[in-house]
Nucleic acid binder design. Structure first.
Lengths: 243, 243
DNA sequence: CAGTGGTCTAGACCACGTG
DNA sequence: ACGTGGTCTAGACCACTGC
């Protein structure tokens, strides 16, 4: 009679609280930038102590899902171009050390059935529909990155018909599609420019390029984007985030 | 009369406890792998509550300075080739996804006055003495990385005279020199192989290489190593740690 | 079994931001 | 002045480890 749930959940209470909160965020109970109830109200509502709620909130904060501000409250992280740059863009100027945010130019949006590498990276059914964005990114007016972005059509309906692609995408994902980005998995290699790359970036064929192969995952763990960037790092470098 | 210290420290108690513990670790009170006293003893000894000690210990655990094992105790992290690989070696096989630990071959150890880039990276006085290690690293018997390591002579006396350089260095730093590695700062670029690189790695001149420029810092924040790796990633990739 | 870290609670007080 | 998160305490009980 005392068992609150048919399935005995042996995980720590704070982990269960965390999951409950995460589910409510995904369901849109609290939108981007919204304030959550304070710790005591959440604790009372869930029948646990305030310290347990705090531990759950701290965990979600560490995973960049919430932000806490002393004296103000706890808020759902709002994706903006600024913090998107800060978290997901690891290119820096060699001299100044400043982070680089390239411009976007000549974006081409197409769609079609997922090819082998695409459905592997995005964990899709074979032949699922995807949207592809190809664009050139510039820095100080010079060609900098040739970028290909692949998205599952199911998650982003109507995106294929967009006329203009914004420079930063994750704020669009969150606000227009309710997809909240949590983490990325980046794999780097050095490659020589193919004839096609050389043309796009206005460099010599065979010139060394940094190839960044990135899969982005949402807070529920599903892959939501595959991005291939060929970077002509002239006076810039990629800085690995601290482990 | 009630003020325990002449200088009023306004930081949180747990931060002060953390600093005290860190100082004792650096002084060698507890060596690599040694167990700390339990939480209650530490709390009594420092005149704070057990929860406060716990918060300090948790912080040091997150920074990989301590490890906690339920039922056993809290221990100073012991650097071993295995966990050194796990934390600081970000090269993976494309097919298997397994982490790669290359061999070390033909190490040449020299010493001399620090050059411009060296004392900049290691924050040394102009003209300070450094030890340089140059070696070729192989994977599956094939040339893989041409590596140059530069160390401040002051921190590692006698290292310049070593006949054999072990494959992994950080365990040596900790056990023989009391230098505990805390974090790295890695900058990546794609470059074309120079004639010299091509020779060392047995590849064509101009072939694309991943250049990893890494500075390693000890737990007291001082730079202790500068490492330049030119990687011929044949069927492998660099995987960025999660931000 | 004894000893350790891990979880959970309840309550007090502090520091910060806003009105 | 008020409400928020941040710190700190004291104590109970659980889960794991090793003897």
């Amino acid at each position: 009679m005392d068992q609150p749930s048919p399935k005995l959940d042996s995980r720590p209470l704070y982990a269960q609280v965390r999951e409950l909160l995460l589910a409510r965020i995904q369901m849109g109970d609290w939108g981007p930038g919204a304030a959550l109830p304070n710790e005591f109200d959440l604790a009372r509502e869930m029948g646990v102590s305030q310290g347990t709620v705090r531990k759950a909130l701290d965990g979600l904060t560490q995973d960049h899902i919430l932000v806490r501000r002393q004296g103000r409250g706890t808020f759902v992280v709002e994706q903006t171009p600024a913090n998107e740059l800060f978290r997901f863009f690891n290119l820096y100027d060699n001299k100044s050390g400043a982070q680089i945010l390239p411009d976007s130019r000549d974006a081409r949006v197409t769609s079609g059935k997922a090819r082998a590498l695409e459905f592997a990276r995005l964990q899709l059914e074979k032949g699922a529909q995807v949207v592809r964005i190809e664009r050139l990114r510039t820095h100080d007016g010079l060609p900098f990155i040739a970028e290909t972005i692949v998205l599952p059509d199911l998650l982003f309906p109507g995106l294929a018909a967009m006329k203009y692609v914004p420079n930063t995408l994750y704020d669009l994902f969150q606000k227009s599609y309710g997809v909240m980005v949590a983490r990325t998995d980046e794999r780097l290699e050095a490659v020589g420019a193919t004839k096609r790359d050389a043309n796009a970036l206005n460099i010599a064929e065979g010139a060394p390029l940094l190839r960044v192969d990135r899969v982005t995952y949402s807070i529920d763990g599903r892959p939501v984007e595959w991005r291939l960037s060929l970077c002509h790092l002239d006076g810039a470098h990629y800085r690995a985030p601290p482990g």
